[in-house]
Amino acid sequence: MSAAVLTLAEAIEHYVADGASIALEGFTHLIPFAAGHEIIRQRRRELHLIRMTPDLIYDQMIGMGCARKLTFSWGGNPGVGSLHRLRDAVEHQWPRPLELDEHSHAGMAAAFCAGAARLPFGVLRGYLGTDLPAHNPNIRTVQCPFTGESLAAVPALNPDVTILHAQRVDRAGNVAIHGILGAAREAALAATTLLVTAEEIVDELPPAMNAIVLPHWVVAAVVVCRGGAYPSYAQGCYARDNAFYRHWDAIARERAGFLAWMDEHVLGTTDHRAFLAGLQQAAA
């Protein structure tokens, strides 16, 4: 295997530094919760968080003081409501001020695609006629040299580190991702360093129909982490825990309750296996 096989603690310690720009991508499923929790345990600070749809894991990282900036398109607790720790950071600067770089989904996709192609910016027909460019100086316009048409432009996204969760990695280090892809491929190829947590390592990957395969030479390190996307789902492996998402709304509403929960279930556990065991014990 070309990619290093590490523990999650080793991977985060070695590759995620204070001040880094990091993208924990995953669209409805395969959200790398375990990696985000390890970043919190290792108390990383001054991070620039990047993600097309930040939800609970970024709420937790922001609330624990890991982030100085968020580049995103839509942020919320899907199917439930607001991210209370994100709102507290924006509205009250708690636990610290948070700089926002807000885009549409199309703008984020264009920025990731440009980053993956090593181009300086992405171009799209979005934003024109909206008020978002008035609030985000990173949204600008360019004139097409062929038609003269005015188009929106966004700077390329090139995270220092992208972290993905996948169903399988083979022993050569190739990564197979099945199901809804979101911006996983583009975020992977745009990054300086790609880390992948996976449900399992297999001798041979299944056929890649309706899936993507990231070749081993773009992967810096692989971590075997069963259930690493929980409470989101991993297609073909386990379902989304909708009750957790609903419960999170109450946990995150008040600072004291949030900090107590994080202290018990994240800071108070050694790894993702212990995190899952603690949740099961609390529910029993």
Rank of each mutant, 00 (worst) to 15 (best):
H37N: 08
V224K: 03
V219L: 00
F258K: 02
G81Q: 08
P145H: 00
V223P: 01
L56A: 07
V175S: 02
H29W: 11
D55K: 15
I57E: 12
L205M: 04
N210I: 11
T193H: 01
R273Y: 05
H265F: 15
H165Q: 09
E13Y: 03
V224W: 05
L124W: 00
R45D: 13
V219M: 01
A188F: 05
N242Y: 11
T71G: 02
S73K: 08
G179L: 02
T147E: 04
H84I: 06
R41F: 09
L151W: 10
A229E: 03
A282W: 04
A166W: 00
G107I: 08
G107H: 10
L189K: 03
E13T: 11
L24Q: 05
F146K: 02
Y15N: 13
N174A: 04
E204W: 01
Y58I: 14
E149T: 03
Q281C: 12
A190W: 07
P54H: 14
I22K: 06
R85W: 06
A282C: 04
R185L: 14
F244W: 05
R87K: 13
Q60M: 15
T130Q: 00
S2M: 10
I62E: 09
R273T: 12
G76N: 08
V5K: 02
M64F: 00
M1R: 06
E46W: 13
R240Q: 01
D55F: 12
A153L: 00
T270Q: 07
L181I: 06
L83D: 09
T192A: 14
R45F: 10
F258Q: 03
A106I: 11
G75R: 14
V16F: 10
G126N: 05
E46Y: 15
A117S: 04
G126H: 00
Y245N: 03
H14K: 15
M108V: 02
P97N: 14
F112V: 11
R96H: 10
S73F: 06
A110K: 04
R255W: 08
H92V: 02
H247M: 12
A34K: 03
L259K: 08
M262W: 09
E10K: 10
R246T: 12
P95C: 01
I31G: 04
H37Y: 08
A221L: 01
Q235W: 14
E254Q: 08
A20M: 06
F27L: 12
E13K: 13
Y245Q: 01
A198H: 07
A284T: 14
S232K: 03
Q60G: 10
L70R: 05
R43E: 10
I163R: 03
A284H: 11
Q280H: 14
S150C: 15
V219Q: 04
L83G: 02
A109V: 15
V90E: 06
A220H: 06
E10I: 10
Y233E: 15
L164K: 08
P231N: 07
S104P: 01
L86S: 01
D101G: 10
G236P: 07
R125L: 11
R41A: 05
R41L: 12
V175C: 00
A176R: 06
T7S: 12
R87G: 04
V213L: 00
E25L: 13
E254M: 00
A34I: 13
